[in-house]
Amino acid sequence: MSQALKITLLSLICSVPAISLIHRLFTDQLGANPVETLEHFSGDWTIYFLLLTLSISPLQYYFRPRWPIPMHLVRRVLGLSAFAYALIHLSVYFAFDMGLSFNDTLVDIAERPFILIGMLAFLILIPLAVTSTSGWQRRLKRRWSQLHKLIYLLTFLGILHYALLVKADLFQPLAYLSLFAALMLARQLKGLKRN
């Protein structure tokens, strides 16, 4: 199988949740609060793909698996998937919660810290998605990996955005935070070993 085909296949796998969501949308299976379902689903999958993206390097350090395509390409597809789900998330919010009003959105950002934090996370994600290509990677050289370290910050902000929204049950955001912490720790331990 050619590399291009493998990448296409991986991208298709990453879009399965989105396809299932579209299926539910058109078969009226989104439940009593369809907008909330769309938002929670796309938000959850944004975080899952961010965590998957962050797990590639630790996997490499500790297990050295045989990647079907070069590791950095796996990471690129996962990272771009996170961006795609975040874009769905933001679009649903903008269309159905804000009624496509920029003005209402600005007021919402100003008044609600969890919206501001979510927006910040998305804004940080944009340059990472744009510079994900090999061309940009070459052009930016060492600064590319410095820039892409922002994924640590934006993943944290994404989880914080979720934690600030819930009413009392923090179980799920705390589970995400624990996974994030574990992945960060795995990196630190490897760094220590190298020194």
């Binding site: 009593a32 609060n33 907008v35 159905f96 009624g99 008044e111």
Partner: peptide, 19 residues
């Protein structure tokens, strides 16, 4: 009067997309 974390000006009827 807003909830500290969200506005109460609008509501979404169950089953509806729009507020």
């Amino acid at each position: 009067v807003s909830h500290p974390r969200w506005s109460q000006a609008k509501e979404r009827p169950l089953g509806s997309f729009l507020k």
